[in-house]
Nucleic acid binder design. Structure first.
Lengths: 224, 224
DNA sequence: ATCTTTCCCACCTAGGTGTGAACC
DNA sequence: ATGGTTCACACCTAGGTGGGAAAG
């Protein structure tokens, strides 16, 4: 009696998302969210900051998923694949090749989505957001992903069915999310887009607004 | 080749916590963390605020777990059981009965730990923290737990093995975590303890410090 | 010189505290 | 009048931004 009440609470985790499911996994579909935003960045060659302690990505990688078995267990993995063998540099407003890539490693480490493992129903009932993944240029303890600065990468998503025998169910890449890892922004158009769309950079958006409105910049006020 | 690299990343989730495991689950052990802190509150009769949008608990319920099957899947559930049939009131510095409990419901809803479901290894490798659970006195959408104000509750933890057939593995209660739900603190000793130990109430701790040091209180400074 | 990286910083987002007056 | 509840608020914790100087 008491136990059934508790067990039904667990069952409830499965209820949403059933209609999007397919026990056979014959047609798993993954689509990138906010593709328009990603495209704005890609048009001018996207950049992502890497720091010692790890920097979040912006835009944030978000996907919606259909076609999993709602009651089966899956983990979602993210890695970053070098898309060419170049080291890049930014000169005269252009990204140009600066010779061969530094190290032979073309694969980053693997980031496991923190909701993993979870039911197919869980992954399908809402957009899956990779907002916590952090990119670094140093070997670190935590779940950060190490990339080579000034190299080009493309995020790849993998869905693994978790069971006594793990099984790779799906591999997806999103060309629009390609970027060059940097330690500081090179293209000021990228900086402007980051400031415009990332809420955490609001401070710099305000400064611009006040400038263009003819007011005094925030930065100037601190000079005695 | 590529697949095995990804699958091994999933396997790595299982590595820690194996030594604390027991495939037979014959001796699952759960122990309350920070029991000394909980006892300080219990000594003066603990109170927890309930609000419309939900209020976190303080102290936070934290447990460490041994004896699960590291590679089996479990969900952790929390509910709140009314420990008597009284409605309580605080008069002259004492909690006294104020008649029978309001409603027949002696059980709260069930809170599912956000890491659920997960491997036994995951639950055993580190202290499990219920810091996100929110207590409310209204029927709400989200994962909040509804309690009756001025009624006494005891948190109960349940471990459910998640499989084709769910199975209740463990039920534990922690007498030291008993509390009375309130919409505003009644006993000023409880208020003082909350301020002393909850980092989010630091503002009021500072005010006290400055008072007792002979300085002006923060509160006074806002009066023109 | 030039290019890349590092560090500290002011400024945000996001949200958890008890307070005290207002409300019922 | 009384006792319980609600709300806006100042003040925190916690941590994500790019800037700009300094260092490699």
């Amino acid at each position: 009696r008491c136990a059934s009440r508790l067990l039904s609470a667990v069952e409830r985790q499965l209820q949403e998302g059933r209609e999007k499911g397919d026990p056979s996994e014959s047609s798993v579909r993954v689509s990138l969210e906010e593709a328009e935003l990603w495209r704005k960045f890609r048009e001018v060659t996207n950049e992502m900051i890497v720091t010692k302690s790890g920097r979040r990505m912006f835009p944030i990688l978000k996907v919606s998923i259909c076609g999993l078995d709602p009651s089966a267990m899956y983990s979602l993995l993210l890695d970053f694949v070098g898309t060419d063998s170049c080291r890049w540099k930014y000169v005269n407003g252009e990204w140009v090749s600066a010779g061969k890539a530094d190290s032979g490693r073309r694969q980053s480490g693997v980031y496991i989505h923190p909701d993993s493992p979870n039911f197919g129903a869980h992954w399908m009932k809402a957009v899956v957001t990779f907002n916590k993944v952090k990119l670094t240029n140093k070997v670190n303890g935590g779940g950060q992903i190490m990339l080579n600065s000034l190299h080009k990468y493309e995020p790849h998503l993998h869905i693994v069915r978790v069971a006594t025998n793990h099984r790779l169910v799906c591999n997806v890449s999103f060309p629009d999310t390609e970027f060059i890892a940097v330690t500081a922004y090179q293209n000021e158009e990228i900086t402007a887009l980051k400031i415009k769309y990332n809420p955490f950079a609001k401070a710099f958006l305000d400064a611009k607004d006040r400038n263009s409105a003819g007011g005094r910049s925030l930065m100037e006020t601190s000079e005695g």
